[in-house]
């Protein structure tokens, strides 16, 4: 069952902005309010907007089957893998092994109130991105499975 033309046009216009906002929240999780979970939920809202506005056949045709499943699994694996890599650096599980190393995300942070540099934080931005794509995949799959478990459309 398609929603009306107005709803579909509104969803088409709103969706890119919601996606960009969600990715902004995920990537800037260590600088501004938000983080992986909140950003992933916002991105999942964009997917859900597509599901509400269009019919079942359109949704299943336009969202690839395995992308959401793979993104969920990859998010969890990246999370645990990043935490495990701290063991090779000689510190505890979940230790911040990239902090102050000078490489990716390794710039030492200035103490006190500062405008913020995205290249700080050690493993925290990586964990943010991991949780973000995991939450995105989980929420998307949850709703896709619920939508696929329904009886067929009446019309």
């Amino acid at each position: 069952m398609n929603m009306s033309n107005l709803v579909r046009s509104g969803a088409n216009i709103m969706m890119p902005f919601i996606l960009v906002y969600g990715f902004y929240i995920v990537v800037h999780g260590h600088l501004t309010p938000g983080g992986g979970f909140q950003g992933g939920a916002v991105i999942a809202t964009a997917v859900v907007l597509l599901m509400v506005a269009y019919s079942r056949a359109d949704v299943f045709a336009s969202i690839p089957k395995n992308v959401l499943k793979n993104s969920e699994t990859a998010g969890l694996l990246l999370f645990i893998g990043t935490a495990l890599l701290a063991l090779t650096a000689g510190i505890a599980f979940f230790g911040n092994w990239l902090l102050g190393a000078g490489s990716l995300f390794g710039t030492p942070v200035a103490f006190g109130i500062n405008p913020g540099d995205i290249n700080t934080g050690g493993i925290i931005p990586i964990l943010n991105i991991a949780v973000g794509i995991e939450v995105l995949g989980a929420m998307g799959i949850l709703l896709l499975v619920m939508l696929g478990g329904m009886k067929g459309d009446a019309e």
């Binding site: 260590h30 501004t32 050690g122 925290i124």
Partner: peptide, 26 residues
Amino acid sequence: QEETGSNNIVTGVVFDYRGFDTLGEA
């Protein structure tokens, strides 16, 4: 701020001091 390297203290607590909670949530 100096121990976790993130300006957002909430994210620093959630992903660094309380990382196991986040793992359980995932």
